[in-house]
Design a binder for these strands. Sequence first.
DNA 1: CAAAAGACGAGACACGGTCTTATAAAGGAT
DNA 2: ATCCTTTATAAGACCGTGTCTCGTCTTTTG
Lengths: 150, 150
Amino acid sequence: MTSTEQRPVWAEHAAQALAEAGYRRGGARRAILELLDEQSCALSAVEIQEALSRRNRDVSRSSVYRVMEELEEIGLLQRVEIGQGMVRYEPVRSGPGHHHHLVCDRCGRLQPFTDDGLERAIRRLSDRVPLHVSEHEIVIHGACETCAAA
Amino acid sequence: MTSTEQRPVWAEHAAQALAEAGYRRGGARRAILELLDEQSCALSAVEIQEALSRRNRDVSRSSVYRVMEELEEIGLLQRVEIGQGMVRYEPVRSGPGHHHHLVCDRCGRLQPFTDDGLERAIRRLSDRVPLHVSEHEIVIHGACETCAAA
DNA sequence: CAAAAGACGAGACACGGTCTTATAAAGGAT
DNA sequence: ATCCTTTATAAGACCGTGTCTCGTCTTTTG
């Protein structure tokens, strides 16, 4: 149930949303936006910095974190906590696009998934539980096919 | 479905399990065991160190982490990642006692819960998904009753 | 009680992330 | 176009959590 692809549009869409939110344009942000748009898998702050550095478009650490914050604020980016204090970020491409993640504990690979049964279970749970549920982000750990084979 | 209470026994039980696993006795471990047994809510490494320090039973950072590792190894302790890179530890009191956690994002309070519907959904999911699932620990975020009221 | 093995503490180190500050660039007004 | 104000960026100091090392102290065992 992978959602509709509209890869090359996100960066533009994001830039526009940013502008509407009152942000000015800037090189670092632009570069980060483009990078995120290309990559389909979620990246960590460090990975983003390194990837850009490799294409001679160095960006400071502060910029990465600042831009991540801005993008998350406007809802263009989703933080995914993959455990051990590691955090990755991925573009939110189409509308809400609610989904969860599978993390391979060996290679660190991240794959999205959606599951109606799971959502239903959580919705039911939310009503019954002594907590005003704001959000849920489920991360399931294991070994991906490649790693499990090896 | 809160499991049977046997609070003051855990430390003893743990000490015995540790001994059977070939560990020697030592002051730091003893102190940590007792502290964990008293507290009902999960504690972070820092909180453990501070709590012990307050009762003039200083313990080194290394010891805290080492003991946590040992206890988790034997299955007497469960790591709970509550987000933002924060980790807390809680005693596993009775048998397997599989459960998940609700985290209040305002006060940090942690409450355990179990849900059969959720477990079923995850089991079904595990079969269908391209990942050899090793474990799952679900953390649901929100505001607890006290905080939501305020 | 002595030797060996393990537990402990102190502190150096690693790493992800935050904060500060000076500089550079963008947008608006003229 | 140019000046001026405001925001974005880079560099690097700083912080917190967790890891590693190593010397010392304690428990166990013979």
